[in-house]
């Protein structure tokens, strides 16, 4: 609206003013100047956001790209601390960090597990969230009480949940193994066996992530007009048919967004892995983002190496987002 109004005034100024402007700056950046002149008001309004975004997102990103092309570590980046002066001795190394990371079997193994972890978690998040949302969308006694109860995991800070789960899973002094022992069953090495630890972290993340999906889907369900169901019932549609041909398509605008968000969040779910297993046993539950942290924060910090991993994560997620949007557009989603 604002832009249009500004547009109007400039247009109202008539061609004479445009002519004058051209005369004053012969051969100058005509179109650019006119563009800014026409939209200056919009630019001024968005400037604070643009500047903040550039400082908070743009600068670190550019710096990250730069560092990933060097061999910078904590030891060779120049600085002066009190009486100690450390000269800058890091060098530009081109794409060496990227080729090294991609050739590293550790990167590929971690990537494989990260993809599996994301796929399993998001599928379970959406599946369980959908099921619970449908249950809670029906008239039910104490419905709001159940809703509050189910949203609770989301309200607890993730790190608190992670620590609680760690105690639940603890091998010798954990609640879960105590219950198994009481029932006469052998204890399970929840966090100490490579395969079981993977299942354990998925359980924690699913528990954490379902409430968000449930809320989002519940909102989507309530937006589906009731008349559609009534009309379908009149026509003799079975409950399954109503679900398949009304509920699922009706949820698509919500589902496509929350699944994409969920995928990005889960792909970068640092807290659960770091706090529950610490990436162990060995490195078996390490995902890309926790491994990037491990590179950056053990001993003498490897700035270049962790920046490389960070950018590779960004590239993977960007590629995934583009493919996902294409796929949605092809199936007729207006997004």
């Amino acid at each position: 609206m604002a832009a249009q109004a500004v547009d109007g005034t400039v247009a109202g100024g008539g061609p004479a003013r445009d002519q004058a402007a051209l005369h004053r700056r012969p051969g100058g950046q005509g179109p650019v100047r006119r563009f800014i002149g026409r939209h200056w008001y919009a630019w001024a309004l968005t400037a604070p956001v643009v500047i903040v975004t550039l400082v908070l997102v743009g600068y670190p990103l550019v710096r990250g790209v730069y560092l990933s092309l060097t061999d910078a570590t904590e030891a060779n980046v120049g600085r002066t601390i009190g009486m100690n002066v450390i000269p800058s001795t890091y060098e530009f190394v081109g794409l060496k960090n990227y080729t090294a990371a991609l050739a590293d079997p550790e990167f590929l193994a971690t990537l494989g597990w990260t993809v599996l972890w994301t796929a399993v978690c998001v599928t379970l998040h959406y599946g369980l969230g959908l099921g619970l949302a449908i249950l809670l969308n029906r008239p039910l006694r104490f419905r709001s009480f159940y809703r509050v109860l189910l949203v609770l995991p989301w309200a607890v800070p993730a790190f608190v949940s992670a620590f609680i789960w760690r105690y639940i899973f603890s091998a010798k002094y954990g609640v879960l193994n105590a219950m198994l022992n009481a029932a006469g069953l052998p204890a399970v090495a929840w966090l100490d066996d490579p395969a079981v630890a993977k299942i354990s972290v998925i359980v924690v993340n699913v528990w954490l992530g379902v409430p968000f999906m449930m809320l989002a889907v519940l909102g989507g369900l309530q937006a589906i007009p009731g008349e559609l169901y009534e009309a379908a019932s009149m026509d003799g549609a079975t409950p399954w048919q109503r679900f398949r041909y009304i509920t699922l398509p009706g949820l698509r605008p919500v589902a496509s967004t929350v699944v994409l968000l969920g995928t990005i969040w889960t792909f970068n779910q640092f807290a659960v892995i770091f706090l529950v297993t610490g990436g162990g046993p060995g490195t078996s539950t390490q995902i890309l983002v926790t491994n990037a942290y491990r590179l950056a924060f053990t001993g003498i910090r490897d700035y270049a190496g962790s920046a490389t991993w960070g950018l590779l994560i960004l590239l993977i997620l960007s590629a995934m987002t583009v493919i996902y949007r294409r796929a949605l557009r092809r199936t007729g989603e207006a997004w």
Partner: peptide, 23 residues
């Protein structure tokens, strides 16, 4: 040596792999 602090991480990961039965 300055790298002292980094020596334990790879070692403990190997030790964990052995104890967990992965290796």
């Amino acid at each position: 040596i300055p790298e002292q602090g980094q020596l334990f991480q790879p070692l403990v990961e190997g030790y964990q792999d052995l104890v967990s039965g992965k290796e």
